[in-house]
Nucleic acid binder design. Structure first.
Lengths: 337, 337
DNA sequence: GTGAAAGCGCTAACAA
DNA sequence: TTGTTAGCGCTTTCAC
């Protein structure tokens, strides 16, 4: 009933400890007969190597950590799955770690991934404790990259999507449909992505010689989208199109307009952002900006592993391109009564 | 630039290795002066203990693993946060691991949490590879519990919510409002929870001497909810109320009814399940069944830790009670033209 | 191809 | 209170 160790395998198989270790590590310098003997012994004994011992002996864990706060986001979900698969292909495992809101304060210190040498590298996914994390990770000399950073010029490697371009394209799409009264619902200032998307909107409007109208939502969520539209209508604003900084906001906005008797997209066009899972499930289907989640994850892994094995001395940050997905919530603007 | 180890601390602080170790483990048998000396030396050196060495030496990792497939679910999100907090309070860390759809097949074998002795215990969160996992975990003698199991009588400790009761209560609520033509949209057979919710519905209907009408959705999602209602209406079914087995289904159903000119809740009442984050954000706000996510997480941790430290020989499965949340999507039934 | 020996960094008896 | 002495289970030179 006690834990079976490599020594038991040695005994059972009749070869030396070193040979067993070699089999474990797929070394080619083991005679086939011996390999079989060892494999058989392992099987019989139900042997599994001790990861602690291996990590200790070779100085690395084969684990990559990723930190996140929310689980309820299609984009993060997609990124994480991509990371997981890329990592697997490289022989690494992924350990996620959620930062509770409560941890927000002393987060960096309490984080198990950072605590000790539990992982070989870390991916920071859109964290707000970015500054502390970066400091702590640099101090501990743990290789890391950041996906979706929020600090303007972090001194770290980042993997991002061009949110400025996304905002620009979204607005441009509306402009091309003949809209001129285009309102933007922007997410919290805290998000660099929100700020960039807004800049993109403003740029597109400026280029069209149109005055921007932006409403600041307190959160990236449905309720805020709803409230934003309601207050805007109360104030007499009559946009013919809305570019929402996130799909949740867009969904809330749609709800609100419908509540006021608007038909989408006849009376109002709506563009969201992120292509959340519900975007193509609701009615009308939401036109939105999609982030290349797979690519984001893959790039993060590629760069991080480069940093770990030191193959590339000077890794560079990456900025990817988003894509406009046109669905049914936007239409050409036709004046009507 | 080389890794600083406990030996460096020993040298710098002037005390013995064991004393340093004692400080590390908060042993009370260390003179305050020495403790300070050690602490100072650690700080100066920027020392952090090696988790691999610690795990190896004491035979446990202080890590608990949890497996999941989706990140986009409010209930799972809530459970995981609760688990994380409970664990933290007990000095454990939580490592999440997602099973890619691709892993579905040979999942148990490829799972890093199971692979070696990486964790002290595992929580299986609503997995479909339940059978394989259970087998593998038992073979490896890794303590584990299952939250939201899908196999009728798993030979394992489970923490669940009474889905039968939830379905019953949801239906009862509609019945109490005077509805008699109550349709149920059920989730995939694969889910034990879906089957139980349906049984609850059927029971309630039977008690009211009403014939049940159930539509099977292929997925717990918005699109399926939409399609279910559309086909049901095409077939001439005219329910006055719908109990959807999940909020996504409910949302899709609402969309479809609205699309057909129904007003909610005047013409049709809708009850969902799970109290997803959007349930109280959409319009009208969705009446639904809420699962005690915090309690689920806490209980899972409590039982798992009991199993690990062996304090309780015979842990028992737990079944918790869901709660009906009445909001605006349901109303008393009044005949009208 | 194979094996003996020397760690990896820490904890846990056991004495002192 | 503190230190000595063994390991924990595996990988990795370096000879054979």
């Amino acid at each position: 009933m006690k834990k079976v160790s490599i020594l038991d395998v040695v005994e059972k198989s009749g070869v030396s400890l070193v040979t067993v270790s070699r089999v474990l590590n797929n070394s080619t310098t083991v005679r086939e007969i011996n390999r079989q003997k060892v494999l058989q012994a392992m099987k019989d004994l139900g042997y599994t190597p001790s990861s602690a011992a291996r990590s200790l002996a070779r100085g690395s864990t084969g684990l990559i950590g990723i930190t996140l706060q929310t689980l309820g986001d299609t984009v993060f979900d997609g990124i994480i799955h991509a990371v997981n698969e890329s990592l697997e292909a490289k022989g690494y495992f992924l350990a996620l770690s959620i930062a509770s809101p409560a941890q927000m304060d002393n987060s960096a210190v309490n984080h198990f991934l950072f605590q000790e040498d539990r992982v070989d590298g870390i991916i920071l996914l859109s964290t707000f404790a970015e500054k502390e994390y970066v400091l702590e990770l640099k101090r501990k000399k743990i290789p890391f990259v950041i996906i979706d950073n929020h600090i303007e010029d972090t001194k770290a490697i980042t993997i991002n999507v061009d949110n400025f371009l996304g905002g620009y394209e979204a607005t441009k799409h509306l402009l091309n449909l003949g809209h001129t009264k285009i309102m933007h619902i922007s997410g919290p200032e805290l998000y660099l992505s929100a700020r960039d998307r807004r800049r993109g909107y403003e740029q597109a409007m400026a280029e069209a010689d149109l005055a921007p109208t932006v409403i600041m939502a307190e959160q990236f969520d449905i309720r805020c989208g709803f409230d934003s539209v309601k207050t805007c209508l109360e104030h007499g604003l009559k946009p013919t199109a809305v570019f929402a900084g996130e799909d949740g906001l867009a969904l809330g906005a749609m709800d609100a307009f419908r509540d006021e008797g608007y038909h989408i997209p006849r009376d109002i066009s709506i563009v969201g952002y992120d292509d959340q899972y519900f975007a193509k499930a609701i009615h009308p289907r939401l036109t939105t900006i999609r982030q290349p989640m797979e690519k984001l994850g893959q790039e993060a892994v590629r760069i991080l592993l480069e940093m770990i094995d030191g193959s590339s001395k000077r890794s560079k940050s990456v900025c990817l391109t988003p894509a406009l997905i046109v669905r049914e919530s936007t239409a050409e603007w036709k004046e009507h009564t």
